[in-house]
Amino acid sequence: MEVQTSNIEDQSTKDKGQKSKKIYPWRAIASFLLVLFTMPLGHAIMILMEKFMDPTAVHYAGFTMGFVGLIMVIIGVFVKGDTRQTLWGLIGGLLFWTGWVEFLFLYYARRYGVPPEIENGQVVTKPEYLIMPASFGMWMMVMTMYIFSTKNGCDFITWIQKKCFGKRKQQIVFQPMTRHTSIVTFMELNMMLWALYLLLMFCYDKNFLGDHHPVTYLVGVSCLVGSLFMFKRQLFLASWGANIRMAIATVIIFWTPVEILGRINFFHEFWVEPEKYTFLMVCILIAFIFLLLYFWFKASKRRKFRSQ
Protein backbone atom coordinates (compact mmCIF):
# COMPACT_ATOMS: atom_id res chain seq x y z
CA MET A 1 0.00 0.00 0.00
CA GLU A 2 1.81 3.11 -1.18
CA VAL A 3 0.29 6.54 -0.86
CA GLN A 4 2.40 8.50 -3.33
CA THR A 5 2.64 6.72 -6.67
CA SER A 6 2.59 3.29 -8.23
CA ASN A 7 5.82 1.39 -8.78
CA ILE A 8 5.62 -0.42 -12.10
CA GLU A 9 8.55 -2.70 -11.32
CA ASP A 10 7.28 -3.61 -7.83
CA GLN A 11 3.75 -4.13 -9.14
CA SER A 12 5.05 -6.41 -11.87
CA THR A 13 7.08 -8.38 -9.33
CA LYS A 14 4.07 -8.66 -7.07
CA ASP A 15 1.80 -9.83 -9.86
CA LYS A 16 4.29 -12.49 -10.94
CA GLY A 17 4.62 -13.65 -7.34
CA GLN A 18 0.86 -14.02 -6.98
CA LYS A 19 0.54 -15.93 -10.27
CA SER A 20 3.29 -18.37 -9.35
CA LYS A 21 2.04 -18.60 -5.75
CA LYS A 22 5.62 -18.23 -4.56
CA ILE A 23 5.85 -16.69 -1.11
CA TYR A 24 8.70 -14.94 0.70
CA PRO A 25 8.02 -15.48 4.42
CA TRP A 26 11.40 -14.25 5.71
CA ARG A 27 11.20 -11.02 3.72
CA ALA A 28 7.66 -10.37 4.93
CA ILE A 29 8.43 -11.20 8.58
CA ALA A 30 11.68 -9.22 8.65
CA SER A 31 10.02 -6.19 7.03
CA PHE A 32 7.07 -6.40 9.41
CA LEU A 33 9.34 -6.62 12.48
CA LEU A 34 11.55 -3.76 11.28
CA VAL A 35 8.56 -1.42 11.08
CA LEU A 36 6.84 -2.88 14.16
CA PHE A 37 9.84 -2.16 16.39
CA THR A 38 9.66 1.53 15.46
CA MET A 39 6.30 1.86 17.24
CA PRO A 40 7.40 1.21 20.86
CA LEU A 41 10.78 2.86 20.18
CA GLY A 42 9.11 6.02 18.91
CA HIS A 43 6.85 6.23 21.96
CA ALA A 44 9.79 5.55 24.29
CA ILE A 45 11.97 8.28 22.75
CA MET A 46 9.26 10.91 23.24
CA ILE A 47 8.56 9.85 26.82
CA LEU A 48 12.25 9.75 27.80
CA MET A 49 12.85 13.18 26.28
CA GLU A 50 9.88 14.66 28.15
CA LYS A 51 10.97 13.10 31.45
CA PHE A 52 14.68 13.78 31.43
CA MET A 53 15.05 16.96 29.38
CA ASP A 54 14.19 20.54 30.17
CA PRO A 55 10.95 21.60 28.38
CA THR A 56 12.78 24.21 26.33
CA ALA A 57 15.46 21.69 25.36
CA VAL A 58 12.74 19.20 24.38
CA HIS A 59 11.26 21.60 21.87
CA TYR A 60 14.63 22.50 20.37
CA ALA A 61 15.56 18.81 20.18
CA GLY A 62 12.20 17.96 18.64
CA PHE A 63 12.52 20.66 15.98
CA THR A 64 16.05 19.50 15.18
CA MET A 65 14.82 15.91 14.96
CA GLY A 66 12.17 16.87 12.41
CA PHE A 67 14.70 18.84 10.36
CA VAL A 68 17.14 15.92 10.34
CA GLY A 69 14.30 13.64 9.23
CA LEU A 70 13.47 15.92 6.31
CA ILE A 71 17.13 16.04 5.25
CA MET A 72 17.30 12.23 5.38
CA VAL A 73 14.25 11.91 3.15
CA ILE A 74 15.77 14.34 0.64
CA ILE A 75 19.08 12.44 0.70
CA GLY A 76 17.10 9.28 -0.03
CA VAL A 77 15.95 10.81 -3.32
CA PHE A 78 19.55 10.77 -4.59
CA VAL A 79 20.53 7.36 -3.16
CA LYS A 80 20.76 4.45 -5.58
CA GLY A 81 18.68 1.34 -4.97
CA ASP A 82 15.01 0.79 -4.14
CA THR A 83 15.64 -0.75 -0.70
CA ARG A 84 18.07 1.96 0.39
CA GLN A 85 15.71 4.69 -0.74
CA THR A 86 12.93 3.02 1.21
CA LEU A 87 15.06 2.89 4.38
CA TRP A 88 16.01 6.57 4.08
CA GLY A 89 12.34 7.45 3.64
CA LEU A 90 11.26 5.28 6.57
CA ILE A 91 13.78 6.57 9.13
CA GLY A 92 13.54 10.14 7.87
CA GLY A 93 9.76 9.97 7.96
CA LEU A 94 9.73 8.68 11.54
CA LEU A 95 12.03 11.48 12.70
CA PHE A 96 9.95 14.03 10.78
CA TRP A 97 6.67 12.80 12.29
CA THR A 98 8.06 12.72 15.82
CA GLY A 99 9.86 16.06 15.59
CA TRP A 100 7.73 18.28 13.39
CA VAL A 101 4.31 16.79 14.07
CA GLU A 102 4.06 15.29 17.55
CA PHE A 103 6.54 17.62 19.28
CA LEU A 104 5.06 20.69 17.60
CA PHE A 105 1.59 19.69 18.80
CA LEU A 106 3.17 19.20 22.24
CA TYR A 107 4.76 22.65 22.12
CA TYR A 108 1.56 24.50 21.28
CA ALA A 109 -0.51 22.43 23.70
CA ARG A 110 1.86 23.45 26.49
CA ARG A 111 2.14 27.03 25.30
CA TYR A 112 -1.61 27.62 25.40
CA GLY A 113 -2.28 25.49 28.46
CA VAL A 114 -4.32 22.67 26.92
CA PRO A 115 -5.15 20.27 29.79
CA PRO A 116 -4.86 16.49 29.36
CA GLU A 117 -7.86 14.18 29.53
CA ILE A 118 -7.96 12.59 32.98
CA GLU A 119 -9.98 9.58 34.14
CA ASN A 120 -9.82 8.09 37.62
CA GLY A 121 -6.90 10.36 38.46
CA GLN A 122 -4.81 9.17 35.52
CA VAL A 123 -3.93 10.88 32.25
CA VAL A 124 -5.54 8.88 29.44
CA THR A 125 -4.93 11.32 26.57
CA LYS A 126 -2.11 13.82 26.42
CA PRO A 127 -2.87 17.43 25.39
CA GLU A 128 -1.04 17.20 22.07
CA TYR A 129 -3.31 14.37 20.93
CA LEU A 130 -6.44 16.19 22.03
CA ILE A 131 -5.75 19.03 19.60
CA MET A 132 -4.63 16.77 16.75
CA PRO A 133 -8.21 16.21 15.42
CA ALA A 134 -8.22 19.91 14.48
CA SER A 135 -5.91 18.93 11.61
CA PHE A 136 -8.62 16.80 9.96
CA GLY A 137 -9.27 19.44 7.32
CA MET A 138 -5.61 19.54 6.32
CA TRP A 139 -5.53 15.74 6.10
CA MET A 140 -8.57 15.83 3.81
CA MET A 141 -6.89 18.54 1.72
CA VAL A 142 -3.90 16.26 1.06
CA MET A 143 -6.15 13.26 0.43
CA THR A 144 -8.18 15.27 -2.10
CA MET A 145 -4.96 15.96 -4.01
CA TYR A 146 -4.10 12.25 -4.07
CA ILE A 147 -7.60 11.13 -5.08
CA PHE A 148 -8.01 13.62 -7.93
CA SER A 149 -4.44 14.22 -9.08
CA THR A 150 -2.48 10.99 -9.16
CA LYS A 151 -2.61 7.39 -10.25
CA ASN A 152 -1.00 5.50 -7.38
CA GLY A 153 -0.45 2.12 -5.78
CA CYS A 154 -2.58 2.59 -2.67
CA ASP A 155 -5.45 0.10 -2.75
CA PHE A 156 -7.65 2.34 -0.58
CA ILE A 157 -7.20 5.42 -2.79
CA THR A 158 -7.56 3.33 -5.96
CA TRP A 159 -10.84 1.89 -4.61
CA ILE A 160 -12.16 5.41 -3.89
CA GLN A 161 -11.18 6.52 -7.39
CA LYS A 162 -13.01 3.57 -8.95
CA LYS A 163 -16.14 4.21 -6.87
CA CYS A 164 -16.15 7.98 -7.42
CA PHE A 165 -15.01 8.20 -11.04
CA GLY A 166 -16.14 4.88 -12.49
CA LYS A 167 -15.35 4.65 -16.19
CA ARG A 168 -13.90 8.18 -16.14
CA LYS A 169 -11.08 7.13 -13.77
CA GLN A 170 -8.51 6.93 -16.57
CA GLN A 171 -9.44 10.43 -17.73
CA ILE A 172 -9.19 12.05 -14.28
CA VAL A 173 -6.16 10.19 -12.90
CA PHE A 174 -4.41 8.96 -16.02
CA GLN A 175 -0.78 9.31 -14.89
CA PRO A 176 1.33 9.09 -11.71
CA MET A 177 3.38 11.84 -10.13
CA THR A 178 7.14 11.95 -10.53
CA ARG A 179 8.22 9.00 -8.41
CA HIS A 180 10.96 9.05 -5.78
CA THR A 181 10.89 5.98 -3.54
CA SER A 182 12.13 7.91 -0.50
CA ILE A 183 9.31 10.45 -0.88
CA VAL A 184 6.78 7.67 -1.48
CA THR A 185 7.80 5.97 1.77
CA PHE A 186 7.86 9.27 3.65
CA MET A 187 4.37 10.25 2.52
CA GLU A 188 2.92 6.77 3.06
CA LEU A 189 4.21 6.66 6.62
CA ASN A 190 3.06 10.15 7.58
CA MET A 191 -0.33 10.01 5.88
CA MET A 192 -1.17 6.66 7.46
CA LEU A 193 0.03 7.67 10.93
CA TRP A 194 -1.98 10.86 10.62
CA ALA A 195 -5.11 9.03 9.44
CA LEU A 196 -5.02 6.39 12.17
CA TYR A 197 -4.36 8.96 14.91
CA LEU A 198 -7.40 10.92 13.71
CA LEU A 199 -9.47 7.74 13.70
CA LEU A 200 -8.40 6.80 17.23
CA MET A 201 -9.01 10.30 18.59
CA PHE A 202 -12.50 10.22 17.07
CA CYS A 203 -13.20 6.83 18.63
CA TYR A 204 -11.89 7.87 22.07
CA ASP A 205 -13.86 11.14 22.14
CA LYS A 206 -16.92 10.64 24.37
CA ASN A 207 -18.75 13.33 22.43
CA PHE A 208 -18.76 10.87 19.54
CA LEU A 209 -18.09 7.31 20.71
CA GLY A 210 -15.76 6.69 23.65
CA ASP A 211 -13.02 4.12 24.21
CA HIS A 212 -15.48 1.47 25.45
CA HIS A 213 -18.02 1.98 22.68
CA PRO A 214 -18.87 -1.10 20.55
CA VAL A 215 -17.91 0.80 17.39
CA THR A 216 -14.45 1.43 18.84
CA TYR A 217 -14.07 -2.29 19.47
CA LEU A 218 -15.32 -2.98 15.94
CA VAL A 219 -12.69 -0.61 14.55
CA GLY A 220 -10.01 -2.52 16.46
CA VAL A 221 -11.22 -5.92 15.27
CA SER A 222 -11.56 -4.70 11.69
CA CYS A 223 -8.02 -3.34 11.69
CA LEU A 224 -6.65 -6.57 13.15
CA VAL A 225 -8.37 -8.69 10.52
CA GLY A 226 -7.39 -6.23 7.81
CA SER A 227 -3.74 -6.35 8.85
CA LEU A 228 -3.76 -10.16 8.52
CA PHE A 229 -5.01 -9.92 4.94
CA MET A 230 -2.41 -7.21 4.23
CA PHE A 231 0.35 -9.41 5.62
CA LYS A 232 -0.87 -12.28 3.47
CA ARG A 233 -0.48 -10.06 0.43
CA GLN A 234 2.93 -8.96 1.68
CA LEU A 235 4.10 -12.57 1.58
CA PHE A 236 3.99 -12.50 -2.24
CA LEU A 237 6.26 -9.46 -2.62
CA ALA A 238 9.69 -10.51 -3.88
CA SER A 239 11.23 -7.02 -3.68
CA TRP A 240 12.72 -6.07 -0.32
CA GLY A 241 11.85 -2.41 -0.81
CA ALA A 242 8.24 -3.13 -1.74
CA ASN A 243 7.97 -5.48 1.24
CA ILE A 244 9.12 -2.78 3.65
CA ARG A 245 6.69 -0.25 2.18
CA MET A 246 3.85 -2.74 2.43
CA ALA A 247 4.92 -3.50 6.00
CA ILE A 248 4.48 0.19 6.90
CA ALA A 249 0.80 -0.01 6.02
CA THR A 250 0.39 -3.44 7.62
CA VAL A 251 2.03 -2.44 10.91
CA ILE A 252 0.15 0.86 11.27
CA ILE A 253 -3.17 -0.93 10.74
CA PHE A 254 -2.06 -3.72 13.11
CA TRP A 255 -0.98 -1.20 15.75
CA THR A 256 -4.48 0.33 15.91
CA PRO A 257 -6.03 -2.53 17.95
CA VAL A 258 -2.85 -2.56 20.07
CA GLU A 259 -3.51 1.09 20.94
CA ILE A 260 -7.17 0.39 21.68
CA LEU A 261 -6.39 -2.59 23.93
CA GLY A 262 -3.79 -0.55 25.78
CA ARG A 263 -6.28 2.28 26.19
CA ILE A 264 -8.83 0.03 27.92
CA ASN A 265 -6.07 -1.51 30.11
CA PHE A 266 -6.32 -4.93 28.51
CA PHE A 267 -2.53 -5.15 28.88
CA HIS A 268 0.24 -2.93 30.17
CA GLU A 269 1.96 -0.77 27.56
CA PHE A 270 5.54 -1.16 28.72
CA TRP A 271 6.81 1.36 26.16
CA VAL A 272 5.08 4.21 28.07
CA GLU A 273 7.45 3.49 30.98
CA PRO A 274 10.69 2.70 29.15
CA GLU A 275 12.86 3.56 32.17
CA LYS A 276 11.21 0.68 34.07
CA TYR A 277 11.66 -1.81 31.24
CA THR A 278 15.18 -0.92 30.17
CA PHE A 279 16.25 -4.46 29.28
CA LEU A 280 13.19 -5.08 27.09
CA MET A 281 13.51 -1.73 25.33
CA VAL A 282 17.23 -2.28 24.72
CA CYS A 283 16.48 -5.70 23.22
CA ILE A 284 13.95 -4.13 20.85
CA LEU A 285 16.45 -1.42 19.92
CA ILE A 286 19.19 -3.98 19.21
CA ALA A 287 16.81 -6.10 17.11
CA PHE A 288 15.75 -3.01 15.16
CA ILE A 289 19.35 -1.96 14.47
CA PHE A 290 20.23 -5.51 13.44
CA LEU A 291 17.36 -5.64 10.92
CA LEU A 292 18.18 -2.17 9.64
CA LEU A 293 21.80 -3.13 9.01
CA TYR A 294 20.70 -6.44 7.50
CA PHE A 295 18.47 -4.67 4.98
CA TRP A 296 21.16 -2.10 4.21
CA PHE A 297 23.93 -4.64 3.54
CA LYS A 298 21.51 -6.89 1.68
CA ALA A 299 20.77 -3.99 -0.66
CA SER A 300 24.49 -3.20 -1.00
CA LYS A 301 25.32 -6.81 -1.81
CA ARG A 302 22.58 -7.03 -4.43
CA ARG A 303 23.67 -3.77 -6.03
CA LYS A 304 27.31 -4.90 -6.11
CA PHE A 305 26.27 -8.20 -7.70
CA ARG A 306 24.27 -6.41 -10.42
CA SER A 307 27.15 -4.07 -11.22
CA GLN A 308 29.53 -6.97 -11.93
Rank of each mutant, 00 (worst) to 15 (best):
M1K: 08
N7A: 12
K16R: 11
G17C: 03
K21G: 06
K21M: 12
R27Q: 13
A28I: 05
F32A: 14
F32N: 08
L36G: 03
F37E: 02
P40R: 05
G42I: 00
I45K: 02
I47C: 03
L48H: 04
H59W: 07
Y60E: 00
F67N: 06
G69N: 03
G69W: 05
L70S: 05
V79H: 03
K80E: 11
R84V: 03
W88G: 01
L90E: 07
Y108S: 08
P116T: 13
E117G: 03
E119G: 08
V124E: 06
K126F: 11
Y129V: 08
L130I: 10
I131L: 09
A134K: 09
A134Y: 14
F136R: 00
W139G: 01
M140N: 07
M141Q: 05
F148W: 10
T150G: 07
K151G: 05
W159V: 02
G166Q: 04
K167I: 14
K169L: 14
Q171P: 11
Q175E: 15
P176G: 07
P176N: 10
T181R: 15
F186A: 07
M187R: 04
N190M: 04
M192E: 03
M192D: 01
L193D: 00
W194S: 01
W194V: 00
L196A: 03
L198N: 04
Y204N: 11
G210Y: 08
D211Y: 10
P214M: 05
G220R: 01
V221R: 06
C223L: 04
L224C: 13
L224H: 08
V225P: 06
L228R: 05
L228H: 08
F229S: 11
F229P: 04
F231M: 13
F236H: 13
S239I: 04
W240M: 14
M246D: 15
A249G: 13
T250L: 04
P257S: 06
I260F: 02
I260P: 00
G262F: 05
R263H: 12
E269L: 10
E269R: 09
F270I: 15
V272E: 01
Y277P: 01
A287V: 13
F288A: 07
L291F: 12
L292Y: 09
F295A: 09
K301P: 02
Q308H: 13
